[in-house]
Nucleic acid binder design. Sequence first.
DNA 1: TCCGATTTGTTCGTATGTATG
DNA 2: GCATACATACGAACAAATCGG
Lengths: 378, 378
Amino acid sequence: MPTKYDIVKQEIKSRILDGTFQPHQKIPSESELMKQFEVSRHTVRIAIGELVNKGWLYREQGAGTFCADRTHNKRLSSVGSQKNIAIVTTFISDYIFPSIIRGAESFLSKHGYNVSLFSTNNDHDNERRVLEKILTEPFEGVIVEPTKSATSNPNINYYLNIERLNIPYIMVNAFYDELEPLSITINDQKGGYIQAEHLIQLGHRNIVSFFKTDDLQGVKRMKGFIKAHRNHGVTINPNGIITYNSSEKLTKPKEVLTKLLDLDRDSRPTAIVCYNDELAITLLDVLREKNLRVPDDISLVGFDNSFMGNLTEVKLTTITHPQSKLGETAANMIVDLVKEKNGQQKKSAEKVQSVVFEPSLIVRSSTAELNLRKKVTK
Amino acid sequence: MPTKYDIVKQEIKSRILDGTFQPHQKIPSESELMKQFEVSRHTVRIAIGELVNKGWLYREQGAGTFCADRTHNKRLSSVGSQKNIAIVTTFISDYIFPSIIRGAESFLSKHGYNVSLFSTNNDHDNERRVLEKILTEPFEGVIVEPTKSATSNPNINYYLNIERLNIPYIMVNAFYDELEPLSITINDQKGGYIQAEHLIQLGHRNIVSFFKTDDLQGVKRMKGFIKAHRNHGVTINPNGIITYNSSEKLTKPKEVLTKLLDLDRDSRPTAIVCYNDELAITLLDVLREKNLRVPDDISLVGFDNSFMGNLTEVKLTTITHPQSKLGETAANMIVDLVKEKNGQQKKSAEKVQSVVFEPSLIVRSSTAELNLRKKVTK
DNA sequence: TCCGATTTGTTCGTATGTATG
DNA sequence: GCATACATACGAACAAATCGG
C-alpha cells in the first residue's frame, strides 16, 4: 500500500513530467498542497523533500518551491557531489594574492567546496597548461586572475571552451576585453587619479610615476594619473611616466629612479606615484641609499593598502584594495553561478553581475606638502 | 548559526569518520540519540535522514540504523584517475606559508596533480572539519602542517583513519609525536641555539626571548635557547623567556616588551630573541616608539628569513628557513609515496624517509656587539 | 510460533523563526 | 509593516518490522 507522501510525491512528479510544472515555475505552496491532498503539512514536506533531494525541485525560503531545470544534468549525476572550484592567479605567494586567496578559500570551505589552486606566474604557456587541466577535470566553477591582461591573449579559445562546457567562470582584478566576462575588479583608473590628485593638491608639480603595464591594472592606473594632471591643468613631466613589466619589476624601476634622483635639484622629482605598495617598498630602499627623507624630501604614494606598507618605518600613503573581501565576493559569485547552472536558483530576478570596488585614499606618513624650503636650506 | 539537526548530523558523521562507528555497525537508536543530544525524535530523524540520503547510513525498520560501508564506493569514484593532493596549513595568507604553498604547488602542477588548499587557522575544530572533508573526497595524498602541534591533538583518530584508507600523508614544519609520521621539518632546536649563541658571543648577557609555544617549533626553539645559555655558562634572566600562543601574538609580546623596556637601565634587556621574523617586525614597532636604536641600543634576532625582515629600515639578523624549498620537498615526497602506493615504484632501494633541514645564521644589521658605552653616555 | 520489547515508519498537531515580495 | 511561504523544532500516536526468549 502506498503511503500518503508517496502519492503526493508521484502526483507532483507527474505534473513535472507532463509539463504542468515548467522549469523554474513555482509549484503550489505547502499549505495549498495540504488542501489538495487532504494531508498534513508534514506529509507534504516529506514528499517535497524527497523530490528536492533527487533534483526535481528546489526550495527558496520565503519565495516558494520551484520546478528544477533538468535539461542537462547528466554530468552532475555521473560525477556525484564533487564540489570543486578552481582558482587561477598569476602568483600565489606574493604580495596581496595570499589575502585574496584566503578570502575565497574561507568562503568556499564554509559552503562545502574544495578549492584547487593554480598559478601562471603571469606566463601564457603556464596559463594554457592550467586551462587544459581545468578542462580535463571536473570543476564546477573557476575564478581567474588573468595573465598579462593588458596584452592580447593567445589562450582565448580555452576560455571559450570553458564557456561551451557550461562551466561558470569569473575574472578578478582584470579581464580580457574580448570575452566580456563576469568580473570583480577595482576602479583602477579612479585609483590612479586619486594618487596623482593627492600629490597635486599637496603642491607637487614634478611627479614621477611607475606603472607595470603588462596587466590592465597598470594601464588603467596610468590613465587615471594622466587624467588627474589634465583636469588640474598640470603638465606632466616628459620623463614622468615609467612603464615596466613583471619580469623587470625588481630591476628597471630602481635603476630609473636612481638616475632621476641624480638630476639637479630643480628637475628632480618631488613625489613618486607607485604602481603598488610592493614597488613603493622597493623604491624606498633607493631613497634610503640616497639619504632622502620621506616625506620631507620626497613624497611617495603606493597602491593596494598591502600589509607591507605598514611594516616599514615610513607608513605608506596608499589606495584601498579589498583583498580578502575581493576573494570572498568572487567566491560568493561563483557559488551563485554554480547554483544557477544546476537549476537550484530562481530565474533571473537577481541576475549575477560584475562588481567594481571603488578605491579611496589612505593618507599615512609617506606624503607631505611640497617643501619649498628645500631650495633655501642649501 | 548551525541548526540542531545539523549538529546531530555532524556529530554522527564525525563518529563514522573517526572510526567510532565501523561499517555495518548499529548506531544508537533514535530514542537513545534523543537523550544524548536532548532533542526531539523529529530532529534526530531529520539528521539521520540526510545522512541516509548521502549514503553514510542505512536504516532497517525494526532493527536499527547502521553505518554504511563506503570503502567500495570510494574506490569506484577515485578510479577516474583524478590526481588530487590536499595541502592543509594553519594559515594561508600569512608570513612564509604562501612561499611554502607555492613551492609545493609549483612541483605538483608540473607533475600533473591538482592542489586543493585547506587552512585550519590553528584551530582544532577547523582541523577536524578539514580532515572530514579530505576523508570524504578522493584525495591521493595529503601534506599537513599540524595544528597546535605542541598540544595533544583530539583529531588523532582522523589521521589514523587516513592511514587505514591507505592515503599517504606527510607532515611539514612539525608533527604529532604519537603518529610518528613521515615529516619534513627544520632543526628548530639548533636554530634556537644559534640565535642565542650569536647574541651571547656578541657579549649580551641579559637576553629576553619570545616563543610561541602552541606549536612544536616554538617549544623546540626555546629548548635550543636554554641549551645555548647552559653550554656557554650564561645564566638566563628569570623573566627572560616569554611564551605566548597564536591568539595572543598581536598583543602579549608587545605589552610584555613595553614593560621590560621601562625597567631601569641595568636590568633592561640588551637583546631580543624572537620566535620568528613576523614577531621581530612587530616588536620593532615597540622599539621605535621607545626611541631605541637597533642595533646600537638593542639587538634583535629573528627566525625564518622571511622577506619581511628585508623590507624595513633595519635588516634583520635571522635564521634560514627553506620555505618554498620545503614545500617542493614535501611535494616531491608525496608524489613518490603516491607512486609507491600505486605500485609504480621504481626500486625499493631508495626508501622514502623524513627530511630535516639544518638551519644557519644570517647576520644582517639588527645585531651588534654589546655596547658598554651606554652606561657612560648618561 | 507467539509474545513483548525495541526500533524504525507514517501521520497528525502546534508553535516559532526567518526570508521574500 | 504585513502577509505569505518555507525552516526548524517540539510533542503525540499508531503502524510495521525485527529479535530474543
